[in-house]
Design a protein around this nucleic acid. Structure first.
Lengths: 229, 229
DNA sequence: ATGCCTTCGTGCATAATTTCACAAGGTCTC
DNA sequence: GAGACCTTGTGAAATTATGCACGAAGGCAT
């Protein structure tokens, strides 16, 4: 095996790099030129050593005794994340969310232009949303080819999400942003990121309940004077 | 220290329980009565041993040689996640997303009723969205108290997100669902879940670029006949 | 009952991630 | 240019998460 393929960045670090990038963009906007791992750690709410290790996966771009240069690091993170080019997005499912994504202009300037939107409902096909016309999901493969689509966003109903994903994968798309509350069956060569508010709320619920119980216990203990340390 | 407080479930397992719950609800809807860890693992796209370990944190509710009962497990997961009661949600920020969340009726039946929405813009205050009237953010504390709010959803602009969170925390809210693309500063006693599509897209971008490079390398290697295994 | 079959629950090994702690290497002052 | 002072980069330890492998336990057929 030719070992020239780029050193892999640990998954956990990959999920943090976009957060760092966000913060650095803010620093840049406020004319900050340099930062230390301590400063970034405080802003990102993580440990400073973790910041340094994460940044070290990009290469040795800091200066000891000084810190990191904002603009240079922004460039390096973008390079590593593949943000020096654009990745075209197609939205599958022209419901409320799908149309909102198509209309929302916030992704194009960040390198993820929404170049198409499709649906399987004849009533929706042909309608205009933002600057796009809803296409027929049956033309998805052609659309992916012609518009060089790299990422598919699933905003269909739960019932049709799996077939939507199958169509995308058939068309050669290997990155999926899934908004349907369902676990998609995909080959391991495909990346899937799930956005599910229900799941997030339930996770919050767990920790909220933990805290609530903790408090109850404390109250009872106080009342009955059984506190022990 | 009185060690009666419930055994902690590992964070990684907590994030998977809602996914299992989703799947079990589907099984229940299709009249499936029992399932094995193998079956659930296949549906959730994870390892069967992991499923068993995750479920074992709830207690020993399986039957060896048989499997788990769907309805019973649903109940146990709900209990553990704190889903046997309702958690009221207040939305802070009455923009597109905030109003959509307020209108969207999908959370109430799942135990997370949106009981209020507030903004700081006088033009928005007083407007109606769904069955709710946009309130003044300055009345947030009273609202949290009167309506027994447990979770706050931040859908403000990035610029006002931190002050929105500060207000929520002052009002006693300890669970935050944040949609603003910013890292919120919060005490460690507060749970925050971030939903940021930009971050998700950038993570997809990284892996997509990896695959692209891999392919390029393979092509070059094939052309120049330097393939080595 | 007995024995076979199935699937859970879990101890243990391995892998991944986080954190510590400090040498290395740079700047800045005098 | 020498010494004081920072902050990086990274081994190594600690913690957390994953996956294997197998004993335990229940069902079912004979």
């Amino acid at each position: 095996m030719t070992q020239l393929q780029r050193r892999r960045i640990p998954d956990a670090a990959v999920t943090r790099l976009p957060v760092y990038l966000q913060i650095l963009n803010n620093l840049h906007a406020t004319n900050v030129l340099r930062f230390s791992s301590d400063e970034l750690a405080a802003l990102a709410g993580v440990n400073a050593a973790k910041v340094r290790k994460d940044l070290s996966y990009l290469g040795s771009y800091g200066t000891r005794g000084v810190g990191y240069e904002v603009t240079y690091l922004i460039h390096q993170i973008k390079r590593e994340l593949g943000l020096l080019r654009e990745w075209n997005v197609v939205v599958v499912g022209a419901g409320n969310l799908g149309c909102a994504l198509a209309k929302f202009g916030g992704f194009a300037p960040r390198g993820f232009p929404v170049v198409g939107i499709v649906d399987n409902d004849p009533k929706k096909i042909g309608q205009t949303t933002g600057s796009l016309t809803v296409g027929d999901v049956r033309n998805l493969a052609k659309m992916v080819r012609d518009l060089k689509v790299a990422i598919g966003a699933i905003t269909t109903s739960t019932a049709t999400a799996q077939s939507a994903v199958d169509a995308l994968i058939d068309a050669g798309v290997t990155s999926i942003l899934n908004f349907a509350p369902i676990v998609l069956a995909t080959p391991s060569s495909v990346s899937v990121r799930n956005v599910d508010l229900g799941v997030e709320l339930q996770i919050l619920s767990y920790y909220e309940q933990m805290r609530t119980e903790q408090t109850e216990v404390a109250k009872i203990q106080t009342k009955s004077s059984t506190v022990s340390v």
